[in-house]
Design a protein around this nucleic acid. Structure first.
Lengths: 62, 62
DNA sequence: TAAAGATGTCAATTATAAGTGACATTTCGA
DNA sequence: TCGAAATGTCACTTATAATTGACATCTTTA
């Protein structure tokens, strides 16, 4: 479980807009939000910066 | 730049010991420490937990 | 000063992240 | 309530993370 979807929606972005901002395909965002796979660190950093947050807020549990 | 090497040395672990603890090859740790590639989120989480820290401490800049 | 441990790096292979195109369903504003 | 936007998912391909084995160099320590 991660918090990408929550942060994306708070920012009023669609999966497509977020994908374009980060430079990946829309499907990649969809898969990450639904925990279907394991993104790279570079992509996690891009998501955190684009969403105005940090790695722990998006991906750290406990 | 990341802080894996600093945390590993603080814990008194070799690259090999850390690799075994996290479940990857020694070369993988070496490449990450020298910024030769882009680890997966799952591996970053494993490193953070094994080293008793979190994602931001190891991988977040600024 | 020899030997063992630790590190950096290479080549080749395997596993999987990520891309592309497409289609069905759901959501939401005109 | 119709149509467009948004989302979830499929199959297939491409890029690259990660593995394995090997070897050279550099540190330590016996």
């Amino acid at each position: 479980m991660n918090h990408v979807k929550e942060y994306r929606q708070q920012r009023g972005l669609s999966q497509l807009k977020l994908a374009q901002a980060v430079g990946v395909a829309r499907q990649t965002i969809n898969l990450i939000e639904n925990d279907k796979y394991n993104p790279s660190l570079k992509l996690c950093l891009g998501l955190a910066k684009t969403l105005g947050t940090d790695l722990n807020s998006l991906f750290w549990e406990e």
